[in-house]
Design a protein around this nucleic acid. Structure first.
Lengths: 165, 165
DNA sequence: GAAGATTGACTTCTCAATCTTT
DNA sequence: AAAGATTGAGAAGTCAATCTTC
């Protein structure tokens, strides 16, 4: 599954900081919803002999980028993965012929990852599976609340967090 | 990080099934929100010399269960982890003295995982860190939409999914 | 034979150390 | 010295095979 990621869960008070039960339930729901959809999509991809979502997560930003290329560090920042992890992930995707590495002319320390034609082809095969999952497993049950959910979760995602601690 | 888990991401149309951009954005927001909060909480736990969230995910259900114990399979079902993965996770938690294994009297194939006193103590140390993260990183930005978000995501989490495919 | 738990082999991610270029 | 990429060693997860009990 996904690192995913990776856990459902339950949680507690135990005398520490109190969080009202119904508010805690919303966090639990997010964990469960995430786990369920990801797990299911991964299974569907595997069932069709396609690569895991992590490959999609790499190929798609490359496809969108100018010149169909991004530097390895840029890529690692977009996907939630350490620089080291990205190097290894690219090793595998490159071995499959979906990406190739090219030197960066202006900075000889850097390396571009570039999607190949086969990589774009793979995106075309993976997207329908992914889209079906998003639609049936997530968007359908959310229904008319989609706008509220989007706005709320975008506030969470964009939270700086530097004010805390 | 967490198991996955684990990825942010972006996504595409590429000529396949169309998903309206603003609806797709809600899925993207969920991925980003999940990744951000989990990543941050894991970092906070590590900074305080505490174990990862996966340990919490094991200790808490055990604490709540009658007799402070659950069978290994039951545990694996609650947490998103294969049975094998749970065996290995328990090996580590048991080595740290937070859990012990006991045979199941009625079924000699089975094994209980039981939280120890040290395990409960660890829960007490971990919860404040976790709670702070949930509150500041998730509940605060969600604000008054918490009820709508909870209901929507619970529908996603509870989705059977057997109708699809 | 099937279920529960475990082990072995393999995959994937992370941290620390290394090499090259700035 | 710092930044970008890579490599080695170790941590943690999965699948397939095994062992015991039902």
């Amino acid at each position: 599954m996904h690192l995913l990621s990776l856990h459902l869960l339950v949680m507690a008070r135990l005398g520490g900081p109190r969080i009202e039960e119904s508010r805690l339930a919303s966090w639990r729901a997010l964990l469960n919803a995430h786990a369920r959809v990801i797990q299911r999509v991964e299974r569907d991809l595997q069932a069709e002999g396609l690569p895991p979502l992590s490959w999609y997560d790499v190929l798609w930003p490359l496809y969108r980028a100018p010149g169909r290329r991004l530097r390895i560090s840029e890529l690692a920042d977009q996907v939630v993965l350490s620089r080291t992890g990205m190097v290894r992930l690219l090793d595998r995707i490159e071995a499959a012929g979906l990406v190739r590495r090219e030197p960066v002319p202006e900075d000889r320390r850097g390396t571009y990852a570039v999607v190949t034609g086969d990589g774009v082809e793979m995106l075309r095969k993976m997207w329908p599976v992914y889209a079906r999952g998003i639609d049936a497993l997530f968007l359908a049950p959310v229904g008319d609340d989609v706008a509220v959910v989007r706005d709320a979760l975008e506030r969470v995602a964009k939270r700086d967090g530097s004010s805390e601690d």
